Simulated scan of single mutants.
Amino acid sequence: MQVRMELTYRTKKGLETIFSSDMMQAGQAIVIAEDMEKTGRIKQLTFIDSNEGSWTYKQLKKYMEEIKTEPHDIIVYFDGGFDLKTNKAGLGCVIYYEQNEKAYRIRKNALVEGLVSNNEAEYAALHLGLTELELLGAHHLPVTLVGDSKVVIHQLDGEWPCYEKELAAWIDRIERKLEQLGITPTYKNVSRKMNREADQLATQALQEIEITSHRER
């Protein structure tokens, strides 16, 4: 989970001002907050998550202790490719997460038939990533979903409308899966270069090269 810190700082002479930090991983925010508290000049400290939820120091630290043994700080990269000649789609997803104070990476691809466009392949790749999260046991936590398709990202975040029947069906399927897992999504659109791993997995799937990997980073 990512949070930003909002704090009131008081000088020795009693002057006060309010600071707000950039977003950062909750664990990092706790370490910084602990260090700042040692100055004795922090009058008030609040953590704000990506959904504008407010946390006290004790609440955030307790939450981080509770999820330590569960998969958390999850980022899912996804990409799909469609071959017009074969009418086959290659799906790729990469999942980064932490558990028991260790960092892990899952790489998975799949070759599928029955899709009709590259956009549909992109949706199917995201659904593949969510299926991997379900197998991982991830549930009831925020997850960042990253793709290079503006159509998919902005249709899912509600910024763009969806008129295609087959894509609307995928949106419904993905939203049901998110609700089933209790996942609060944050959608992020990146360039293809920034989505290189998932793109390569999708390409390898179209070449009938199957990839399944789950290891510590």
Rank of each mutant, 00 (worst) to 15 (best):
R41L: 05
N87Q: 15
E6Y: 00
L156T: 04
K85R: 15
A89K: 07
F19P: 04
I74G: 02
L181Q: 14
W160I: 02
D199S: 05
L128N: 01
I211A: 10
A121V: 10
V190T: 02
V112C: 12
Q155P: 01
T56L: 08
E120R: 03
Y123G: 06
L15H: 14
Y123W: 07
L145R: 01
V190F: 04
M23I: 06
L178Q: 06
E175A: 01
A89I: 09
E166H: 13
P71K: 00
P161S: 12
L84M: 14
D73R: 07
T131K: 11
A169K: 15
I153E: 05
R4I: 00
Q28S: 13
E34I: 05
D172C: 01
R192C: 02
K68V: 09
D172R: 10
W55V: 04
S117T: 15
I209M: 14
T11Y: 01
A205F: 00
A121R: 01
L181A: 11
P161C: 10
T39D: 09
G53P: 01
K38I: 05
I42L: 13
E37F: 04
Q99A: 08
I106M: 03
Y57T: 07
M194Y: 00
D148M: 06
I211K: 08
Y9K: 02
H140Y: 12
I171L: 03
L130K: 05
Q99I: 09
T11I: 03
L181C: 12
P142Y: 05
V143Q: 07
A121W: 02
I42G: 06
A110S: 15
L130C: 09
T144L: 00
P142K: 07
Y96Q: 12
G158A: 09
L141F: 06
F82R: 10
G182F: 07
M24G: 01
H154N: 15
S213N: 09
D83M: 13
I183K: 05
K43L: 12
E101V: 11
T11V: 07
L111R: 14
Y63I: 08
Y97L: 10
Y9D: 04
Q207F: 00
E101P: 03
I32W: 07
L84F: 09
E175G: 04
K61T: 15
L201T: 08
R173C: 05
E210M: 11
K150M: 10
A103H: 11
A169T: 09
A125G: 09
D83W: 08
E113V: 13
D22C: 02
S20E: 12
L133I: 10
I42K: 04
S21M: 06
D22Y: 00
Y57Q: 03
I183M: 02
D49V: 09
V94Q: 08
H139A: 15
E113P: 06
V76R: 00
R41C: 04
T69K: 15
L135D: 15
Y97G: 06
T212N: 14
K188T: 10
E37T: 03
Q99W: 02
I183Y: 00
T212D: 13
C162H: 07
A205T: 13
Q44R: 14
G137T: 10
S21D: 01
C93I: 00
N109T: 13
E120V: 08
T17F: 14
D199F: 02
H214F: 06
L60D: 08
K13P: 03
K12E: 12
E6G: 10
A138C: 13
E120N: 09
S149F: 06
V152G: 03
R176I: 06
V152K: 06
V190G: 03
D22T: 12
